[in-house]
Amino acid sequence: MLITQLKSKETIASLAAGKKVFIINCHGCKEVHFPEKEAIELQKELAADGNVTGSITTDYICNPENMKLRLEGHKSEIEAAEVVLVFSCGVGVQTIAEYFEDKKVCAACDTYPLPGFQGVTPLEYDCDQCGECYLNITGGICPITACSKSLVNGQCGGSKDGKCEVDGNMECGWERIYRRLAQLGRLDVLKCPTQIRNFATDDEVAK
């Protein structure tokens, strides 16, 4: 099981502030607990500003074929948007971010683990369910799973020819992040405050 929990209202508002937004909700696999009611309420508030170009509620967006099919009917709404705001687990956000190469894709949720079956996701992307989703400051590529040291403040000095020091077959996750941010024209995101991980988050959810 896993839980997706909405990021704070202020965080989500700052992601959407003054921008045209398309919203994707993924109610996911049966193993995901999604904050349906809270999400609807928050999205109503966002829509009241008149900046939401459209929205879709679906399942299994982590399956790229399924996702493309579902988004087919919303092309113009998506084109009109500057930000695609995704309410899903980390795998869903990464799948969407990879699909929209030139669009700012943001995570509106943090994902936490619960014991038990972890759901059905394709193997290309991974979500560590760290509870403090970093995808909004890494161009939609997860630094926890794409970097062998799970670094959150940029790459170490260990990559050689773009490959990780630990595994010569693995691309340096942070070089991928850097390239993606450059492609999106969002390198300024790297000037964000120093990130310090909070390993206590799962306990806090359990409280």
Partner: peptide
């Protein structure tokens, strides 16, 4: 002298 020197500079700035 890294092959990704711009990324290195970004990290240096951090």
């Amino acid at each position: 002298c890294s092959d990704s020197v711009d990324a290195q500079l970004a990290k240096m700035e951090r």
